[in-house]
């Protein structure tokens, strides 16, 4: 069975989200093609060709693909679709924006956020904020699916030797235009793939207080996340939100500070290996999923935590 994986990238480098998506692809078929559509993105295609398991990289390079607009990429993918039994993309904002548009034009269902491949037409996906896992079966000729990146191990990035072929660009559609982006700059690891995540909630009280988390994040090499309440209050940017309707994370260690543990938040972090909760309310639901719960005032606990980490290093 042939699988087409739509690569997410920024024309410079491949997004880490591609790697677990390739792993999901290998569970569906041996013949895996990666589509790199963008502008001046030859380097990305070359990097993609190194991923073991990928047999072919298609490079579609044109100015109107530069910003990954769904309107422009859809005709390209729809034209190529006839050759594939599966079309996959990561369940990131990139993939979620794009694949339903592709599926609708192919007149097939799109399956969102698969976490498990049972067989070639049967998949598992979380519903109701992860409170249930649905098994869905598709008899569509092409199965168009987004992949939950935390549910599949990342493929490695070297050792492969796929061919890179040029795919002719489709005509510009011109319905939408990219104006600009305002990306959060950070030297910290990416929230989606970090080994350690420390998240703050409404309990932090101000944007300034997130510095308490930063001090610890620096020492642990952690990414910083947040609850919806903390984002809504403007303590941190929108892309910090972990949860049902934000980012899904599954680090080795997740530390929730001043977060009550609403079901929508749990949906985004409860597959973490080890969960720590620091909350002054011993009844807070976050303790139900925590491996280690500390009932404490965060304003006392965090400075102590920071100090204890220093001592650990010595």
């Amino acid at each position: 069975m042939s699988v087409l994986v739509i690569a997410e990238h920024d024309n410079q480098s491949l997004s880490a989200s591609v790697l677990p998506t390739v792993t999901a692809a290998t569970q569906l078929g041996e013949d895996i093609t990666l589509l790199v559509a963008g502008h001046d993105c030859g380097g990305v295609a070359d990097a993609a060709a190194q991923i073991p398991g990928v047999s072919r990289v298609l490079l579609a390079d044109a100015a109107h693909y530069e910003h990954g607009l769904a309107e422009e990429l859809t005709p390209l993918i729809v034209n190529a679709a006839t050759d594939y039994a599966y079309i996959l993309a990561p369940a990131t904002t990139f993939g979620k924006n794009l694949l339903p548009r592709v599926a609708a034009l192919l007149d097939v269902a799109q399956i969102s956020d698969i976490v498990k491949v049972i067989d070639g037409e049967t998949f598992e996906r979380p519903v109701y904020a992860g409170n249930a896992i649905a098994t869905v079966q598709s008899s569509d000729a092409v199965k168009v699916m987004t992949v939950r990146t935390t549910a599949f191990d990342p493929a490695t990035t070297s050792g492969g030797s796929a061919s890179v072929e040029t795919l002719e660009a489709t005509e510009p559609v011109g319905l939408s235009e990219f104006v600009g982006r305002d990306y959060s700059e950070s030297d910290r690891p990416d929230l989606a793939t970090a080994r350690v995540v420390i998240s703050g909630g409404r309990g932090l009280g101000t944007a300034e207080n997130f510095k308490l988390l930063e001090a610890i994040a620096d020492k642990l090499g952690a990414a910083i996340g947040a609850s919806r309440a903390a984002v809504d209050a403007g303590y941190v940017p929108n892309d910090y939100q972990v949860g049902q309707t934000g980012k899904i994370v599954a680090p080795d260690l997740y530390i929730a500070v001043g977060i009550s543990g609403a079901i929508q938040h749990l949906a985004g972090m409860k597959d973490s290996k080890v969960i720590v909760a620091i909350n002054k309310d011993e009844e807070a639901p976050i303790f139900e999923v925590a491996d280690y719960g500390l009932v404490a005032d965060l304003f006392e606990a965090l400075p102590e935590f920071s100090k204890a980490l220093d001592e650990l290093d010595n």
Partner: peptide, 29 residues
Amino acid sequence: HLKVTNVAEPPARSGGVRVENVQELVDKL
């Protein structure tokens, strides 16, 4: 287009412990 063949509860997390203080937390981690 899709048939939902089963809806199940997600795997439950096994119960955790309460720690008394930050020192114990760091020690356990």
